[in-house]
Design a protein around this nucleic acid. Structure first.
Lengths: 243, 243
DNA sequence: CTGTTTCAACTGGTATGACCAGTTTGTTTC
DNA sequence: GAAACAAACTGGTCATACCAGTTGAAACAG
């Protein structure tokens, strides 16, 4: 009755927004030029421009004359790192706090990934997994993070991806600390790999419950292991950011 | 040297914004047509339209085909509280995404609160709980939020508190939407109260597992309830601010 | 005179095409 | 090799024409 057939312009802004949310265009990255979008979206440049204006109004993109439009990297308003980073320094406990949070988040991500992951997602996860296993070098905090990130993205939950990504800086740091503390015990490195495999298998065989369990207990295990060591060797964590 | 002489369009949007802020055009009121603005502002219609789009993006005006543009009566709640806020508009899915994340976070918070909460924490939670129960008014998004916040703080996990707090802006709005959609069904309001009681009891009797379960299933319940309604009445969420 | 129909004049929505103005890049020139 | 320059990008602005809802007043029917 009052169904106005949604103006195309709304649709354009919406579609672009979705592309950004889906990660097709990432924060800081340049999006196609107006002329290109005109083609890609099959509408006139006027519409493209108006859609971009709308997104600009929402603070989603920034535009520079002669250069192009870019996805605002200020996107991660959630949990801005500076604050957390601040918490971190001098408070080794924050590492545990962080892991406590990640425990749930990673669990949820794994679960959703098992439910919703596409073949493409699985491919990415597999690649990350392989890269992780090959490198017996113990320094690969980044690879570890890539693996978890691939899973997060497979959850197709923008908010979840967003929050986890916001914790990225800390995560990286924490993983670094973790590895440097845990991995020179070879059996632990093996255990971690085993965990990853469990998560991996659960997701690819589409068993959400199992994936959740595997992911949470993985983080839990890392946390408690770290805790034990910390109690023994006392104060190792503080030193972790000095290189 | 790098001072690019502010594009006119920015100026247009700004001038219009100023007119509205100055009270020349009041909330709910119609602003001049695009053609009129073209004259009044001395620029082309394209620019006027783009400026209007920008204002629309900020939520300052609403536009209706054939009728005109009107100043939003829900004036900007202070620019953009967070960018995520915008993801909402037209993306009801994001609400579910958000609840999926909160499900775990709230669960963890409740669990930790049960483990670590002090008597003072419990006192605060109790007060929030009472305030929540007394107000049989259904509009108390804030009270609901206060309750969950008290629990979060009782977890004594700064990271968790911070992340949950970051989601506050969204939570508030989502809760608002939630309530306005759920609560006019009286039995649901009762169910929610019951959930809160369960969480409350679990925490104060220091039963972490139970608290976790109660909190997660609470959010889960809210999410699925909302989902059902959304599927039935279809599109209600978008309309939530039209009265 | 009343109620309906109709149509013209609004309103915003979309599409072209032209031209201006910064930016980048590769070529030419010294 | 370095400086100068000239396309070929990019976004910014304008003018014009036409489509599509909305509204209200004039024309008409009863």
């Amino acid at each position: 009755m009052f169904e106005q057939p949604t103006p195309i312009s709304r649709g354009i802004a919406h579609r672009l927004e979705q592309l950004i949310l889906d990660g097709d265009y990432k924060p800081g990255q340049k999006i196609p030029s107006e002329r290109q979008l005109t083609q890609k979206l099959g509408v006139s440049r006027s519409l493209v421009r108006e859609a971009l204006k709308e997104l600009h109004g929402r603070g989603i993109i920034e535009t520079h004359h002669g250069k192009g439009s870019f996805v605002s990297d200020i996107l991660p308003v959630v949990a801005d790192e500076s604050v957390l980073m601040h918490l971190f320094q001098g408070h080794s406990r924050t590492l545990y706090d962080l892991l406590e949070v990640r425990e749930q988040l990673e669990g949820q991500a794994a679960k959703l990934a098992a439910e919703r992951g596409t073949q493409q997602d699985f491919y990415r996860i597999t690649k990350a997994m392989e890269a992780l296993e090959e490198s017996d070098a113990l320094v690969n905090a980044k690879l570890d993070h890539d693996f978890h990130r691939a899973i997060a993205e497979a959850s197709h939950n923008p908010v979840l991806i967003h929050v986890l990504n916001s914790l990225k800086g800390l995560t990286l740091q924490s993983v670094q600390v973790t590895l440097s503390n845990l991995s020179h015990r070879n059996n632990i490195k093996q255990q971690i790999d085993k965990h990853h495999r469990q998560i991996y298998n659960a997701i690819l065989s589409r068993q959400p419950q199992w994936a959740f369990k595997a992911a949470t207990s993985h983080v839990f295990h890392v946390r408690t292991s770290l805790q034990e060591i910390d109690e023994k060797e006392h104060g190792i964590i503080r030193k972790a950011n000095e290189d």
